[in-house]
Design a protein around this nucleic acid. Structure first.
Lengths: 248, 248
DNA sequence: GGCAAACGTGCAATAACATGCAGGCCCCTG
DNA sequence: CAGGGGCCTGCATGTTATTGCACGTTTGCC
């Protein structure tokens, strides 16, 4: 087995799986782990791969963070655009505090007139430079983790108003468990928000579909609109389509 | 499972849900919680994430508004420091929304315990990473000019609570006209804030001393503390000293 | 104020590592 | 063809990294 040959195989393996283990390669190529290590070191110095303790990773895999952010950013913009279209002139809207919601309100055209209630200071600030939209910030205890207002104040306030539509971001959504979240305070507020609204729109990046968190927010059938970055007829959404959820 | 691999997965999880629990990760990645803790600590030191008790949070989500800190001039920092000293452990504090107030709450030592009510979303967000302070955001119509909550909701809410001390920024202050402001909504809220508080502290940069705005907020004698960037015995403050205002 | 979960630390076992050395292979030269 | 040098490989050595567990402490919640 020639060195170049091994290198080629290692690269092939890394391209395939984004990672290799020294021990696997030694077994597979029938050489000692020392040799593999030497190979990996050379290739790391050459910049072909990234060596780590125990094996090596593909160079692109080593810096997936920014790519992911950008990718997720694009997806969220896509979702935001679709969600935005659900807000018609004169509507009374209620929103939660996710980044997708934030994106959405930032994209609202300056000519749109609406009243937006929100539990998120960030959403309120985002809307500060919108000329026509009236913003009502719903006050209460400020949750440091999720940067929205929670607590009994919020819940009882919500009980006194009816909204045309409620936009919520997603933490977990799945067929079996419906909409789920990880924070008790948030769950209670979200429940109250849903109860106070005629329509419920859930915004969800495809990656979060079919993930489950600890606590239940609501059943699937309570969701009216599901807005994702996928095409509405994507097969990944089949199960949700069967629940009579309007897909966007 | 390679360490880098775990790190990448943790980051992915955090980007997705904005937070992770050590216990969940341990289960999901099939390693001990100790290992996860070590991972999270490393990533926290590297600045990738923010570690908290029980798990970790996304850095970008947690500090989206840090750029705001830059604006504060030296004078405002000086004022902020003096004002900060008036907040003692256990106090129930009410604040308005000026940049000086924002500076001040940003400087509060991490060991300080207090409950801070505020009409300013920015103040709430600024305090989001303070471990001990409870933040109550007072909700209402969001004023786009001044980026605080105003309106009858706020006023009636304030009528039901008593605060130890109220911090307000300054728009205009002068011997003849007292504290003045330019926006009717703001004035009404400020009046209610003053009425609800045992002590009134006004934060004011020297340039704004002896300026007058269109509408009156309160008389000079209602002010308990005047915090400026001048020395307390500065002659420019003589007139205010005569009004029995405590100078800082 | 009490309790359980989360925490940090030290320790030990194991895996992975770097390094030096010896043997084997190839090629070159005499 | 014999010998030698360069390169690669495997093995042995000692070192470092990583991980899980045990311990006592801190933290957050009720």
């Amino acid at each position: 087995m020639l060195k170049k040959e091994r290198h080629a195989l290692i690269i092939k393996e890394i391209n395939l799986h984004n990672k290799v283990l020294s021990s696997d390669l030694a077994l597979q190529l029938n050489v000692s782990e020392d040799t593999i290590r030497r190979d990996l070191n050379e290739m790391d110095e050459a910049g072909t791969i990234v060596k780590v303790h125990g094996g090596a990773l593909s160079r692109s895999y080593h810096y997936p963070f920014q790519q992911n952010d950008i990718y997720a950013g694009e997806a969220k913009k896509e979702i935001a655009k679709k969600g935005m279209d659900l807000i018609k002139d004169g509507m009374v809207v209620l929103t939660g505090g996710g980044t997708t919601v934030l994106q959405m309100v930032g994209m609202l055209p300056p000519t749109r007139t609406a009243t937006i209630f929100t539990i998120s200071p960030l959403v309120a600030l985002q809307l500060a430079d919108h000329p026509l939209i009236t913003v009502i910030l719903i006050g209460g205890q400020f949750s440091k983790n999720s940067q929205v207002c929670v607590g009994t104040q919020v819940v009882s306030y919500l009980s006194e108003i009816r909204f045309d539509i409620c936009f919520l971001g997603t933490n977990g959504i799945s067929i079996g468990d419906g909409l789920t979240d990880s924070d008790l305070d948030i769950v209670q507020v979200k429940k109250a928000m849903i109860k106070a609204s005629n329509k419920l729109a859930i915004m969800c990046v495809a990656e979060k579909l079919n993930t489950v968190q600890r606590m239940r927010v609501c059943e699937l059938h309570q969701i009216d609109c599901l807005i994702t970055d996928l095409e509405p007829d994507d097969s990944a959404l089949n199960a949700y389509r069967r629940e009579n959820i309007q897909l966007y």
